[in-house]
């Protein structure tokens, strides 16, 4: 499925849109990590929580945790949220 990546993570993906797969958000992020080592820990902490200033949207709706189911036609957007100056 299509994953849109914020500018802060393009040092990993080198482009703003990548393809990745997985039946859940957690599986999708594992797939991203396989292709772009290091990317997962920058957005998900060691307790599997989405980091404070990261938001992930699936088809325009915010995903709250990694168990969110995904389908092949879904669009996932990773966003950097407000974090001050």
């Amino acid at each position: 499925m299509k994953v849109l990546v914020p500018s802060a993570l393009r040092s990993y993906t080198e482009r703003s849109e990548v393809e990745a797969g997985g039946a859940t958000l957690g599986a999708l992020l594992a797939d991203l990590e396989r292709h772009y080592p290091g990317i997962r820990f920058r957005i998900i902490d060691e307790q599997d929580r989405i980091r404070r200033h990261i938001r992930i949207f699936v088809n325009g709706e915010q995903a709250r945790d990694l168990s969110r189911p995904l389908g092949a036609a879904d669009e996932v957007i990773i966003v950097q949220a407000l974090s001050g100056g």
Partner: peptide, 21 residues
């Protein structure tokens, strides 16, 4: 960064190039 989680960067050439832990 303000958004991204913590990491360690490593250089073996005095900062000419960097690789993440």
């Amino acid at each position: 960064t303000g958004h991204l989680g913590p990491t360690i960067f490593r250089s073996t050439d005095l900062g000419k190039s960097w690789k993440e832990a």
